[in-house]
Design a protein around this nucleic acid. Structure first.
Lengths: 242, 242
DNA sequence: AGGGTGCTATGACTTGAGTCATAAGGAGAA
DNA sequence: TTCTCCTTATGACTCAAGTCATAGCACCCT
């Protein structure tokens, strides 16, 4: 199998395998195969029996659930170094969600048996996997929280804040960044639909919490936006009545 | 420390520790302490720094999130043998949810350092923990699915079906069981409020999908109820228009 | 008996969210 | 240029969900 080095390099950059020694990485690389995906290609489907885990070498992959009408709820979006399909690899169930390549991507596939065999030989690896899995639980709990307790406008505000932090990086009062996603894509992440996101964004602008000019979002002051995102609706409604 | 045997017995009955040998259990039991909780007492709070994990010896404990108005979303409810606080023990964050004793309960507390130390000595234990954590992720993904894609009536139907299976046990067409929870408690599990649950239950009765008599629920045939729970709303709405 | 307390049930109302239809702007292709 | 295709924006409409108020029932405690 050629290009083992490339695979080893890719594995070394992941959180899951990053701490392993050269030998272990070489073994894994030998057991693995590279798979190339075009944008829009499905990596796996919800409910399908799982055969192994995927490690992203390049590109970005969206993991989501979908209802019978095609409406999507994004669970998470991953890029270089992330691991996919780890849940079914460890609990032996089917895939709990579907995954699609958002851009042309390269992933490394490692069969479930390999992983399980590997686990028995590399105890410290299992600890890392456990930590990553715990973080996943935490993220999902956060998602439940957002969906249960915040309405669309607030979820949009939270989304903009997280995008702003990711993009702008710093901990500033004023953040400005280019909105790389369409309203429809935003909707799939915050659990809504295109139209409603459009309206919610307009509302945030009316409230002077953000300004949008040609898909460039400016948050003049993050604090009131954070307050809006976390505020109980009852309070804001009562206030708005007068 | 007296009553070590009792602790060992309790630990042996858990999924997390059940496969360990006597020696390991004894060590854990020696490091642990028993804590008694009255019904309604909090075990830990969302956001609090986590100090260790809890194993339920007796009683039932509810893990939930809450918004500023006091509305609750139950994440899961656990009894004998379940483990709580494992996520923060392994990813070193704060508690991702709050926990309260629903009934008088006894739990075993094991400090985080003990657990982490234990992990290094007992590789196969980590594998079990990983599997349980993966199952947790799966459950949460399922919860997100329910909240995102099903409306209250459907979520109630799913809840009744799961209660029926749990109680009645068998895989029958017709299920009848006593509804041990109040409408408010049901509401916290399916992400709604008391009034709405009451109405939704009335609607299920009008549709002849269930009958309720003095808190005893009868599902004459589970199949139409399952269909109702999974049906896309659009289809039912269009149908109802004529 | 009287007075809590907690639960259910139900009608009236409000509102957030989603659907549908339409208009308009930008990008790219022929 | 013109014709698509994709996107955003917006008004009109519908409906599910939630809020509020009220009434009735069962239970418990003096």
């Amino acid at each position: 199998m050629e290009r083992t080095d490339k695979k080893v390099e890719a594995l070394r950059l992941t959180r899951l395998f990053g701490l392993l020694d050269e030998e272990a990485l070489l073994w894994l690389a030998a057991q693995s195969e590279v798979r190339r995906l075009s944008a829009g290609e499905m990596l796996f489907f919800f409910g399908e029996p799982a055969t192994g885990i995927f490690v992203i070498m390049s590109g970005t992959i969206r993991v989501f659930q979908q209802n019978s009408e095609g409406r999507e709820q994004v669970m998470h979006i991953d890029t270089n170094g992330a691991t996919l399909g780890d849940v079914p690899a460890f609990d032996d169930g089917p895939y709990p969600a579907s995954a699609i390549a958002q851009t042309d991507s390269e992933v490394i596939f490692i069969g479930k048996e390999m992983i399980q065999q590997f686990c028995l030989q590399q105890p410290q690896f299992v600890l890392v996997a456990l930590k990553l899995m715990a973080e996943r639980v935490r993220k999902h709990a956060q998602l439940v929280n957002n969906l249960s307790f915040h309405e669309v406008g607030q979820r949009l505000a939270l989304f903009l804040l997280s995008e702003g932090e990711k993009d702008g990086g710093e901990q500033q009062e004023c953040i400005s960044f280019r909105l790389s996603l369409s309203n429809h894509e935003i909707a799939t992440r915050i659990g809504s639909v295109r139209d409603v996101v459009s309206r919610a964004l307009a509302r945030l602008q009316k409230l002077r919490l953000v300004t949008v000019k040609e898909r460039t979002v400016t948050i003049p002051d993050v604090r009131p936006l954070k307050i809006y995102a976390d505020s109980s609706l009852k309070a804001t409604t009562i206030h708005a009545k007068h």
